[in-house]
Amino acid sequence: MNKFLLLSSSALLLSACATDPNAATRVNNSAGRASVYEDVRSSSAIQGIGVESQDIVGIADKMVRDMLSNPILAGRATPPRVLIDSEYFKNMSSSRVDKDLIINKLRVQLSRAANGRMIFVGRQYAGVAEAEADLQHAGVVDGGTTGAPAPTLRVDYRLVGSMNSQDTVGSRSGETLRYQTFTFEMLDVRTLELVWSNEYEYKKSAQDDLIYR
């Protein structure tokens, strides 16, 4: 009888091992926490004193609307050629942010809203035209459908600007306060006249225990 019981319990234990896949790998097979979509236009539960999505969207929105109300930029019979890239936009602030995140948003929003009132030059992609012309000269590709290679456009105005900040840290509380400014200007590349300027600023305070990357 004892032998029978021992054999039965061993068989049961073995069968349990064979059917439970977690027993072998020790995988934590729980559902986990689902990711949550949030509104890019509003602050979220995780927020600090750095540059966040609502700031980037707000900057682009404000600058686009102001540029399109400027007669030099958006009221000319011949639309001006503009170059909006981050080469002359400096991040001098203590905020860690990819400045192309701001400039790309600005260029795309402005390009969509301008609707022919400005001509946008993609100087940052200049190598593309040269490479394509080289391939055509080498006989690798044909002439395309938009005509012979043409000189790339000289721009009238170029975006320049900077991000600057001033931090204040409470030595006892560890609370940090940041005054952050974003300055945007359109420079006449022929005369260096600044034909348009605007800025966006904020002051935020928090226990600075977030990592921006």
């Binding site: 236009r41 509003s42 609502q54 969207v57 707000g58 929105d61 404000k62 686009v64 609307r65 102001d66 399109l68 109300s69 809203a113």
Partner: peptide, 20 residues
């Protein structure tokens, strides 16, 4: 985009927005 406006106690401030 939501634009923040600071109002002082009993004070007046303005909100302005441009169309594109």
């Amino acid at each position: 985009m939501w634009q923040r406006v600071m109002l002082d106690p009993q004070g007046i401030s303005s909100y302005k927005e441009l169309s594109t």
